[in-house]
């Protein structure tokens, strides 16, 4: 399998990457970890003319702590996040999610920024950034801006990023108590249902991936939560539930409730 021909540019700064994106529009693709993009290009499902590799851009692959936040550079690999003591201690739910993500080799290459920008509806990160109320830092021709996780995912493989914008970092509020649970599709190991619950005193924030073509905050669950798992009944309220070979709408809805219940009862 061989991708269609393309030009490769290794960007050395965010502004260079952004300018290239702006210049080439739909013909360009950002290459981060490449774990989703490169297979798609090999199958010629995706055929960019310009591939802009952002891996070498300085300052995009650090994990930093500032007061009540942990800031993760977009180019941090899943392995970096998995091995970070700081993440383990301060945003443990993120650590939990990364343990279920891909495999050793994919985690060694794939990045958090790449995964978020790709917006696979069955990816793990979306549930976590939603439940954590993380802020996604992006930069484009118009400069930098911050997009709340709740505004970021807009559909299948679709985000709030403008065509000239790239994800530069993700800011996670520290989370004392959270749980990520995943029920995976047996072939791809992507989530059929991925549930992230952040507990905050008597309240919860619940992010769900895999269930709908857009990962979502289960606000109906959050509103109904009274300290036990009963609110899980509302896991798919108002949601258009996906259906595929492994899980039809009925089963997927049921699984969502089961996984939310289990997470709430942690």
């Amino acid at each position: 399998m061989i991708p269609a021909k393309f030009d490769y540019i290794k960007a050395t700064s965010i502004s260079e990457a952004v300018n290239l994106l702006d210049e080439h529009g739909f013909d360009a693709k950002i290459l981060s970890g490449g774990q989703s993009l490169l297979p798609a290009m090999k199958l010629r499902l995706n055929r960019p003319e310009i591939v802009i590799d952002i891996n070498g851009i300085p300052g995009m692959n650090s994990i930093e702590e500032t007061g009540d936040e942990v800031i993760i550079g977009a180019n941090c690999t899943h392995t970096q996040i998995l091995n970070s003591d700081m993440v383990y201690k301060t945003v443990n739910i993120l650590h939990q999610a990364v343990t279920t993500l891909g495999d050793v080799q994919v985690r060694n290459r794939g990045t958090i920024g790449g995964s978020l920008a790709h917006a696979d509806p069955s990816a793990d990160y979306p549930a976590v950034v939603l439940a954590c109320n993380a802020q996604i830092e992006v930069e484009g021709k118009g400069g930098k801006r911050t997009i709340a996780a709740t505004d970021f995912f807009q559909g299948i493989f679709t985000t709030a990023l403008e065509d000239d914008e790239i994800v530069t970092a993700v800011r996670f509020p520290k989370v004392a108590h959270g749980k990520y649970l995943k029920f995976y599709q047996s072939a791809s190991r992507f989530a059929i249902v991925g549930v992230a619950v952040v507990f905050d005193d008597s309240k919860v924030k619940v992010g769900i991936t895999g269930v709908s073509d857009t990962p979502y905050r289960a606000t109906a669950v959050e509103e109904a939560y009274t300290g036990n798992g009963d609110a899980a009944e509302h896991a798919v309220d108002g949601i258009e539930v996906m259906s595929d070979h492994f899980a039809d709408e009925n089963y997927r809805s049921h699984l969502a409730k089961v996984m939310v219940k289990r997470a709430l009862e942690e």
Partner: peptide, 24 residues
């Protein structure tokens, strides 16, 4: 017993033609 299945749809397209869908 637990995982594997080549599935075709009515038109004869293969639903499980990669390791993303054929579970081994």
């Amino acid at each position: 017993a637990l995982l594997e299945e080549v599935a075709y749809d009515e038109a004869g397209q293969m639903i499980t033609g990669s390791y993303m869908d054929y579970a081994m």
